[in-house]
Design a protein around this nucleic acid. Structure first.
Length: 823
DNA sequence: AGCACGCCGACT
DNA sequence: GTCGGCGTGCTC
């Protein structure tokens, strides 16, 4: 008998992902446990890859000899039995490999990078090596590269030296002659959250003296140095943004000794210590009723899902804080998930105040090492309450009694990367595993969740009473078409400007929400209507006034704004509002009033969210203008006016969730306007004032919106009536991508006609170009399969993906699948 | 995806 | 005879 490990491999692609059997050598046998990661040889070349041990079995030696496990990477298992089951389920559910799932579940700080280095074998000097290489040009080049490097050459360096040629045959030849050896080491990948900072290495005058005379031949070098002289030091990314320079330019300046590039940690941990302990919140009658019902579910020890539907300000948080107290009292642990934008220092402080040292915080802004520390605290049982964003759903809590998803409709719960999981579904699975209660909390639940609740599949608890019984603020909907007719062509209507001015005169504050990504605006030619496109992606470039350049939001390409339209010579116009443009318009309309801008640009530079919001409140700045993130400032007592600059921008996006997203946003804004003593009002600007989504949001009429939207979803065949499987093909040649898509469609049509799949009743759409048809010189087309998400359908889609990856006809085209994407 | 193996043309 | 380019099939 021998010990065999069944292992999921990092190197396996989706098409060949399955457990592979390896022999456990006797000297490793007593240390190896399922859930540990190992290094194993894979493929004909026995290249080293990482693997995750799924199971260990005693077996009689088979006919063919198994390859051995080489190294164990972990002292203790990193995933327990339930986590391994979750990984297997994720593969089935989201079309990823088991290892993809495992990677998503583990903190990055745990990560090992395998480093393969080719070195001269012991006792071999460079002369012998060159001799062995003989006349082979490739072999000589390999030796050249290897001897030029003190501790051997890594694979990437060799690849680079060979251009598009393959160094492998030469490497193998030299290895077989005993000249070269390959060493594999596993290096911990901690500290990956760093950024490059450029610092002048010599006095500014000297630096300028070196580059200015050569401004003509090297304008970028000159621009970079001038910027650095002004700033002293700056992040490499920012330098590239402001000057249009690229990283190679910075590296060449480093080589010339003019500047140095240093790696620095980006994130700092938010201190939570020194928080006053809080007492368990007391509930009003309505909250108490919801709490009692939920707690009865939680204490039953059977898995359940509940929707806690409570209007803004009804105190959902107090309810689930009480549930956590109860869970802890029963010896259970609790997990609270918040959307990315919702995990603020206030939230962290709130939980620290209630649960002190028992709280662990997991979010994307933690450094790899810190995240790893928190992960260990959770696994050891020291932390029993976890607050975190999407990936915290995998927190290794034992005896999980409760998971809360706050603002459950938020898009940030769906992962955009492989595996493209939804935290709500993962949470549901974990609750089933542990017999725990899942609480979905929201003032504007997603249509799917409310549908399940009304069907009786989820238990529904409702909070209708607003905090201190405050009335809803008056909401004005301003018709921007009418504004235009009256000759007011800007982004700000006269009623909004008047209200802003009035507020400022009274010393009150206003918040303006620009419902749109970043600081951007489209540019079109006023004569021919042409808009500049990204040369690599099929999307329009947007203008950034901070650096005066056109940029691509997908690949980061940037170029100067042309003086005139290259097609007809006409002048460029700006359409759509960006925060920077609105800011300029505001400054003109409200001379002398201070305006604070808060968008991705303003925040990433030097000031965090928090410092900006803090300034807004402390300095009583009259106007705060920004993207979604300003919604966090709505609770300040002196804010009496909230303006939505263009409700249309998200409403007319081309996906089925646009209505839901817009409704949730407007409802939140209106519901929270004027919470303070002074009351308040909201103004919504739109070109379509009769739109029912906008009107219902203004009235906080969720039920009306739900009824209308549900009917629409049924008509369109969207969730919750059908799930959408999006199968995307991408590649460099548009024709090949489209042909692959057509073949996939024919295959699916054939399969759907088979008796085995007769029950599916699917609707098949496409091929259609993806929303952004080309990204980074790759074309993307997609098929949509609309039907219920059942096991046979998932098996069919999985079979399609495997077939597509194996089919030689699809060379150069990759195919992937996603379920109910949110974009 | 990577990698070996096998086949074939180019150059010595 | 090699060397190196390219197509095909497998990965415990």
């Amino acid at each position: 008998m021998e010990l065999v490990a069944r292992i999921a491999l990092n190197a396996a692609t989706y098409a060949i992902d399955k457990p592979y059997d390896y022999l456990v050598p006797p000297q490793l046998a007593d240390r190896l446990v399922p859930g540990m990661r190992v290094i194993i040889p894979f493929g004909p070349g026995n290249r080293r890859t990482e693997g995750l041990v799924l199971a260990l079995e005693e077996a009689a030696p088979a006919g063919v000899a198994l390859k051995p496990v080489l190294t164990i990477l972990d002292e203790e298992p990193v995933l327990d039995g339930q986590a391994l089951k979750l990984a297997l389920w994720m593969r089935e559910r989201w079309f990823c490999t088991v290892y993809d799932a495992a990677r998503a579940m583990l903190p990055a700080g745990l990560y090992y990078a395998l480093q393969d280095r080719w070195k001269l074998a012991d006792g071999v000097d460079r002369e012998t090596a060159y001799e062995a290489a003989g006349k082979s040009e490739h072999a000589r080049r390999v030796v050249e590269v290897v001897v030029s490097q003190a501790d051997g050459a890594d694979v990437a360096t060799l690849r680079a030296a060979f251009g598009d040629k393959d160094p492998n045959p030469a490497l193998r030849l030299l290895r077989d002659k005993g000249v070269l050896t390959l060493e594999t080491s596993a290096a911990r990948g901690v500290g990956d959250k760093t950024q490059q900072v450029a610092v002048l290495a010599i006095p500014p005058e000297e630096a300028l003296a070196q580059v200015v005379p050569r401004r003509r031949s090297a304008p970028m070098r000159c621009a970079v140095v001038e910027l650095l002289c002004a700033l002293g030091e700056a992040a490499a990314k920012e330098i590239c943004y402001f000057t249009g320079a690229s990283m190679p330019t910075l590296r060449s300046l480093e080589k010339s000794g003019i500047l140095t590039l240093e790696k620095r940690e980006v994130y700092r941990r938010v201190a939570v210590e020194g928080v006053e302990p809080a007492v368990r919140p007391i509930l009003n009658q309505e909250q108490q009723a919801a709490f009692a019902g939920l707690d009865a579910l939680a204490s039953a020890g059977k898995a359940a899902v509940a929707l806690l539907y409570g209007v803004t300000g009804s105190g959902k948080t107090q309810v689930y804080l009480n549930l956590i107290y109860e869970a802890l009292a029963r010896g259970k642990s609790a997990l609270v998930l918040v959307p990315e934008i919702g995990l603020t220092p206030q939230v962290m402080r709130l939980f620290a105040a209630h649960f002190g040292e028992q709280v662990a915080v997991l979010h994307s802004a933690l450094r790899a090492g810190e995240r790893y520390d928190e992960w260990k605290r959770i696994r050891s049982g020291k932390a029993r309450v976890v607050v975190g964003t999407r990936s915290a759903v995998f927190a290794p809590l034992k005896d999980l009694g409760l998971i809360v998803l706050d603002e459950e409709q938020e898009a940030s719960y769906k992962s955009e990367n492989v595996p493209k999981y939804h935290a709500r579904e993962v949470a549901k699975f974990r609750c089933v595993q542990q017999g725990a209660l899942l609480v979905l909390a929201s003032a504007t639940p997603s249509i799917e969740t409310m549908y399940q609740a009304r069907q009786g599949i989820y238990r529904l608890f409702t909070l209708t009473r607003r905090y201190n019984q405050r009335e809803l603020p008056p909401v004005d909907i301003v018709d921007m078409k009418e504004e235009l007719r009256q000759g007011s062509g800007g982004d700000l209507s006269r009623p909004l400007l008047a209200a802003l001015e009035e507020g400022a005169v009274r010393g009150e504050q206003s918040i303006l929400l620009l419902n749109r990504r970043g600081a951007s605006r489209m540019v079109t030619c006023g004569e021919c209507g042409e808009a500049p496109d990204c040369p690599r992606c099929s999307i329009h470039l947007t203008y950034h006034s901070a650096n005066g350049r056109l940029m691509c939001h997908y690949c980061g390409h940037s170029q100067p704004l042309p003086d005139a339209c290259p097609h007809c010579g006409g002048a460029f116009n700006f359409i759509g509002a960006g925060t920077q443009k609105v800011e300029e318009e505001l400054r003109e309309a409200l001379p002398g009033r201070e305006i604070l801008r808060m968008d991705a640009d303003a925040v990433s530079a030097t000031h965090s969210h928090e410092t900006l919001l803090g300034r807004f409140e402390a300095e009583n700045i009259p106007v705060l203008l920004g993207t979604q993130m300003v919604a966090k400032g709505l609770d300040f007592p002196n804010v009496t006016l909230v303006g939505v600059i263009s409700a249309d921008q998200s409403l007319y996006a081309d996906d089925y969730r646009a209505g839901e997203r817009t409704f949730a946003l407007l409802t939140q804004v209106v519901g929270r306007a004027g919470r303070g003593e002074k009351g308040g009002r909201a103004i919504i600007q739109t070109f379509t004032p009769d739109n029912e989504v906008i009107r219902k949001a203004a009235r906080q009429d969720y039920d009306g919106f739900y009824a209308q939207e549900l009917a629409l979803r049924e008509l369109r065949g969207c969730p919750p009536f059908r799930d959408l499987f999006i199968i995307t093909a991408s590649g460099r040649l548009e024709g090949a991508v489209l042909r692959t898509c057509m073949r996939l469609r024919r295959t699916l049509e054939g399969w759907l006609a088979l008796p085995a799949y007769r029950e599916i009743h699917a609707k098949l759409l496409g091929p259609a170009p993806a929303a952004v048809a080309r990204i980074n010189e790759r074309y993307r087309y997609r098929l949509t399969l609309a039907c219920a998400n059942t096991r046979p359908v998932r098996e069919m889609v999985a079979a399609l993906l495997r077939a597509a990856q194996t089919d030689k006809e699809n060379k150069g085209v990759s195919v992937s699948a996603d379920v109910n994407p949110l974009d």
